[in-house]
Design a protein around this nucleic acid. Structure first.
Lengths: 249, 249
DNA sequence: GTACGTGTTGACGCAGCGTCAACCTCAACA
DNA sequence: TGTTGAGGTTGACGCTGCGTCAACACGTAC
C-alpha cells in the first residue's frame, strides 16, 4: 500500500510543496520513485512525517529535526531538546520585555505623548547608544540598568521622561541669571538630576563627577543636553562636581 | 555637523550594511549624498534612527516601523502598537505551549522512552492528522481537545500514552480466545478505552459508536489500531457499539 | 481527441540583513 | 610621487521554510 504525494499532503495537512522540500533537503525521501518521477510514500514515511511535524511544532528548525531523527539515540535527542528548551526560554524572556515596553509606550502615548524624541527618548537620552555604552561601561552595568528599568513604576517612567528636561530648563534659567553653581537653587536641581540618574544606576561621588565631565567631553551628550548652549553643559558639570563633593560620600 | 556612515554605525551599534539597507528601502535616507557617493547623516537622521531601533527592539518589522514613522499621528501609532501587542501575546501563548510539550517530552524520554512512534505518538494515535481532524470535526472540537490536553496531569499523559496500547493488546488476546464482544472482560477493556478517549473529548453514545465505525472505515486508523489485524478493529467497533448501548446515555 | 486533475522540475519571492568581491577616495607617509 | 591603509561605494549571493507561479508530462473519463 502506498500513497501519492497529494494523498499524503491531504492526510497530514502539509502541502505537497512542503513534502517536495523535505525530499529535496533529504529529510523525508519517498519510499520509492516511479519511472515517471512520481513519489510514492509508505507507512514508514508517514510515521517519520508525524515525528517531523511534532518536532516542528515544538519550534525546532528542520536542521534540528533531522539531527534528532538521524541520531535516533535517547541521550542525543534529550541534548537537542534541552538546547532548544533554553532557546525557548530566552525567547520567552525577550517577549516579556517587549510586552512590558510596548504596554508602557502605549500608556504614554495615550496620555497625550507623541512620537517625537522628546517623549519617546527622554528616558534614554543619557543612554542613547547602547552598544557604545556596553563598550564604555561593560555589559554588566548596562544590563543592570535595564534590570532597574524593568522595576519602574509608572511614576518612575514619568520622572525619567520629564526629569532631565526640567533640570536642564531650570539650570538654563539660573545660568542666565548668573547664579553660582554651588547655590542652593542649583544644587536642588542637581539633586533631582541625581535622583533621575538613580533610576538607571547609582553613581558614587567619583562616578557622578565623571558623568558630568563626560557630558562636556562627548559632543553627543553636549548636543543633547545643551541644545547648542555649551556653557550650560559646563555649568551642569560644575554643579554636579559640587554636588558630588558636598552630598555624596 | 554631519557623520559618515561608519561613525553613525559605531555610535548606534548597527552595521553600516544595515544603514545602507535602511537607505535602500527608504526607511532612513541620509541627509545628503556627496558627489563621490558617500552618505552623510545629520542629527535629524540620528533621531530617526533612534526611533527605528527602539521600535525594532519592540519586535516590530521594518514595514510597521515605517508605517509609524510616516504617519506620525498618535492614534495611528497606537493602533499599530496594539496590533503588534496582540501578535506578541499570541506568540507568547505559542511559546508556552511549546515549552510545556517539550518539558513533557524530555521527561518521558528520560524515563526510558525512545523516539519511536510507540512512545512519542501513543497519545496522538487517535488524532494524528490534525488538519483533517479540523475538517472532519471542526476547529472548536480540535481546539477543545487541545485545551483538555493542557490540563493533563503526568498520570493523564501516562494513561494517554499507554492506554490505547493496553486496550488493543488485551482485545487481541480475547479475540484470539474467541470471547464475545459483549463479554464482561471485553467491556472492561472498552471502559478503559472510553476513559482514555475522555482525555481528549467526551463522546456521547452516538459519537462513540461513530468513532468505532470510523476505525473500520478509515484505513489509517485501521492500520494504526489493528497493525494488520483487521478483525481486531471490527471486534473493537462491535465492542464499542455494545458499550454505547449499555453504558452510555 | 480532448479535457481535467494530478504529477514533475525550475525559478523567483519573502525579511533583514551577513558576507564576500571588485572597485573608488582620501589622507598620510617614504 | 607612489604606495599604503582605512575608509567609502555598488552589486550579488546566502540564509529559513516554504508559497506561488510557469511550463510541461501523465492518466483517466467522456
Amino acid at each position: 500500500m502506498s500513497w501519492s504525494i497529494a494523498e499524503v499532503a491531504r492526510a497530514s495537512g502539509v502541502t505537497s510543496r512542503t513534502l517536495r522540500h523535505y525530499d529535496a533537503i533529504g529529510l523525508l525521501p519517498p519510499a520509492w520513485v516511479a519511472g515517471n518521477g512520481w513519489r510514492h510514500y509508505e507507512q514508514e514515511q508517514l510515521l517519520r512525517l508525524q515525528q517531523i511535524l511534532l518536532l516542528r511544532n515544538l519550534g525546532l528548525c528542520l536542521q534540528a529535526v533531522a539531527e534528532i531523527l538521524e541520531r535516533d539515540s535517547r541521550d542525543g535527542t534529550v541534548v537537542v531538546l534541552r538546547r532548544h528548551r533554553r532557546r525557548l526560554i530566552e525567547e520567552q524572556e525577550r517577549l516579556r520585555r517587549q510586552l512590558r515596553t510596548i504596554d508602557r509606550t502605549i500608556d504614554e502615548m495615550q496620555e497625550g505623548g507623541n512620537m517625537t524624541a522628546d517623549t519617546m527618548f527622554d528616558g534614554f537620552e543619557h543612554n542613547p547608544y547602547e552598544a557604545e555604552a556596553r563598550q564604555r561601561w561593560g555589559d554588566e552595568a548596562v544590563d543592570a540598568s535595564y534590570e532597574r528599568m524593568k522595576g519602574w513604576t509608572p511614576a518612575d517612567a514619568d520622572k525619567a521622561r520629564a526629569g532631565y528636561g526640567r533640570v536642564h530648563d531650570g539650570l538654563a534659567e539660573l545660568l542666565a541669571d548668573g547664579v553660582a553653581a554651588d547655590d542652593g537653587r542649583v544644587q536642588e536641581l542637581v539633586d533631582l538630576h541625581y535622583e533621575v540618574t538613580g533610576l538607571f544606576w547609582t553613581p558614587n561621588a567619583e562616578a557622578y563627577r565623571g558623568l558630568g565631565q563626560m557630558y562636556v567631553d562627548d559632543e553627543r551628550f553636549t548636543r543633547n543636553i545643551g541644545q547648542g548652549n555649551d556653557a550650560l553643559v559646563a555649568y551642569l558639570r560644575e554643579a554636579m562636581s559640587v554636588y558630588a563633593d558636598t552630598r555624596l560620600r
